[in-house]
Amino acid sequence: MVRVKLSGPLKVAAGGEAELEVEAANIHQLLTRLAELHPKMKPMLERGAAVAIDGQIYRDDWFRAIPEGSEVVILPRMVGG
């Protein structure tokens, strides 16, 4: 089980839940599972999301393993100047 922290629009899409528990071994599984649980999240996740695992932010890395007990935060995808 992975505990995921949500904020911003994703939190709204999850019906206001700031934290969710999902079964996922990597980022791809995590995003797929979240979209199944909360269909409103699907377009947001498709538009682009970043996932922070223990403080390290991954913008696109489907097969990045999520270690057991790690802290996972989903963020909007970022751009710079």
């Binding site: 904020s7 403080g55 390290q56 802290e71």
Partner: peptide
Amino acid sequence: AKEGTRSSYGPKYN
């Protein structure tokens, strides 16, 4: 903020 601080945008800092 320092290493381990929970940032205001979510993740903890390295």
